[in-house]
Amino acid sequence: MRQAPGFSCNVLDNLIVVIDVINRPGKKVQLLVTTVEELKKAKEGDRQAIERVCSATWEPLYRFIYFKVQNREEAEDITQETYVKTLTYLQKHQALQGNFLGFMKTVALNVLRDRWRQKKRRGAPVNFEEINPEETAHMDHQKAVAQRLQLENALAKLSEDQRTVLDLRIIKSYSVAETAKLTGKTEAAVRTAQYRALQGLAKILEDHA
């Protein structure tokens, strides 16, 4: 069994085991199991099989997508589109002999890129076949850990006021009005402060890239 620090996946006889090591304090380990048989039924549109496959695999996929888009509305949409695209793809191709979750993440990345392209009218297409799914999933996790460390270091370099405004507005999700009340600033001052704090943070991150 491949021992990746992030997500790994194996086909053992008829079982697809998705091991999801969620990167957060407490290091929760989840074993999510689905079967090849179920996947076959699911791709034919069997509602119960789809439900079992979704129940077994949605969370790591959703978390992966949420990490990219950072809002639930879009994450739910893309998760749904990813399942439809994956199962539709599998209808036309032979059964998956590898990392099911990694494959879905690759599909999700394609969906994301399509959407970004539509929004920005630029960017390059990515082909399903050209991507090594296991590598994608693995790389992504390592990148996320590195990014988190880099981000925490960068935040530590900001002034306390700047950290506070980013904490209240972005981490704690307070409104401008609530943040203004908590910090004793005007709403306009909060908007300016968050803009400058993000400018400062972006510069630190760029300098250390």
Binding site: Y62, F67, Q70, E76, L151, E152, I171, L201
Partner: peptide, 22 residues
């Protein structure tokens, strides 16, 4: 902003999501 938000736990869907998704 997106990067800073990655420090948060993701907002998970409402209960019953896998069923609705399926």
């Amino acid at each position: 902003v997106l990067q800073v938000r990655t420090l948060k736990e993701p907002a998970l869907p409402a209960p019953g999501y896998p069923k609705r998704l399926a």
